[in-house]
């Protein structure tokens, strides 16, 4: 089994924080169902993390800019790590990811195995 990183990107404008616990729960449910489905196949390696909207980008020569999204419309909203035998299998796991419902994308990248790092 190899590991693959799923990076979730979505447009910055649509990323409004939930207003109430009910709203939060309604937002979380499709994610929980989708991740629960991957976990039930024993293919979830790490449930990763969600990222907030705030951020800084550090560039050479002590240039620091606000936000990760100055040049692009989309920002990274979070990531998880899955287990799969091939890139195709990993890609098919991304099917049904709730980010796709709000116009976002999932970038699927294979993680270089530890022993190949050098």
């Amino acid at each position: 089994m190899k590991e693959f990183l799923f990076v979730f990107r979505r447009s910055v404008e649509s990323n409004d924080p939930p207003q109430s616990p009910e709203q939060l729960q309604a937002m979380m449910k499709p994610w929980q169902d989708w991740m629960g489905s991957i976990a039930a196949q024993n293919k979830l390696s790490s449930s990763g993390n969600r990222l907030t909207n705030e951020g800084k980008v550090v560039k050479p020569n002590k240039v620091i800019t606000d936000g990760p999204y100055v040049d692009i419309k989309e920002a990274i909203g979070g990531y998880i790590i899955v287990k799969a035998n091939t890139l195709d299998e990993a890609t098919s796991l991304a099917d049904g990811c709730p980010i796709l419902q709000v116009g976002g994308t999932v970038e699927v990248r294979m993680i270089v195995p530890m022993e190949d790092n050098n």
Partner: peptide
């Protein structure tokens, strides 16, 4: 269902 989703993760 939601509890199993979390448990499996």
């Amino acid at each position: 269902l939601q509890l199993y989703n979390r448990l499996l993760q």
